[in-house]
Computed example of a mutant assay.
Amino acid sequence: MIALFDLDGTLTDPKTGITRSVQHALERLGRPVLEADALTWMIGPPLAAGFAKLLGGSDEVQDAVRLYRERYSEVGLFENEVYAGIPALLQDLRDRDVRLFVATSKLQVFARRILDHFGLSGFFHGIYGSEPDHRNADKSDLIRFILDRERIDPAQAVMIGDREYDAIGARANGLSAIGITWGYGSRQELLDAGVACLVDEPEGLKEPIVTLTASTPRRAAGA
């Protein structure tokens, strides 16, 4: 049994750090600075894609990413909070011999620093994220990379996340996906993306993780 967890909006609530770092980038670029609540949609998609949408596809995207990381790497990644019930869930899953991995579009180095900071790294067999050159920022690419690197049978694994990108990436690689509703994606977004089920609190993840990873082999979408 193997479970891949998204990070932002799934294990931790990163709203303050991400939105303040986006605001920092906008201010440095001389762009209008939006309120935090108008920027929560930036939590989930690859950073460059989010800025491309926010800036209207301008040639300032790479500068925006650089400025964002300038603040986020020093301050923003710790403006974060572990969701209630997550440490107990991870401990219970480990006790049940479920192999746990992190699969996040965030830079891998940032993901590890966050998990180390909150004392969660020890629960995971591997922590995977994107690279500075944007490799593996797309969830489909990232999950494929993890499956290959760890030699994981997709039929024995499930992806858990709060946004459509998690479900789409899972389906592209033959995994089922569980949508969680305490993050930043809507219930409809997750259902439309094809999650196997929705879960409203961490405690509720145990049963579907065990059930979905015990299923028969599946073929990847489009295979």
Rank of each mutant, 00 (worst) to 15 (best):
L67Q: 10
L67N: 08
L67R: 12
L67K: 10
L67D: 05
Y68T: 05
Y68L: 02
Y68D: 03
E70G: 05
R71E: 13
Y72R: 11
S73N: 13
S73G: 12
E74M: 08
V75G: 06
G76N: 06
G76A: 06
G76R: 08
L77C: 09
L77G: 01
L77S: 06
L77K: 13
L77R: 14
L77Y: 15
F78V: 09
F78W: 13
F78I: 03
E79C: 04
N80F: 07
N80I: 10
N80H: 07
E81R: 15
E81F: 03
E81N: 03
V82Y: 02
V82A: 01
Y83R: 13
Y83K: 14
Y83C: 11
Y83G: 10
A84V: 11
A84G: 07
A84N: 08
A84Y: 03
G85S: 04
G85P: 04
G85F: 05
I86N: 03
I86D: 01
P87D: 10
P87E: 10
A88E: 15
A88K: 05
A88C: 00
A88Q: 15
L90D: 03
L90S: 08
L90E: 05
Q91D: 14
Q91L: 10
Q91H: 14
D92E: 15
D92C: 10
L93F: 10
L93T: 12
L93M: 12
R94E: 09
R94V: 11
R94Y: 02
D95R: 15
R96T: 09
D97H: 13
V98S: 13
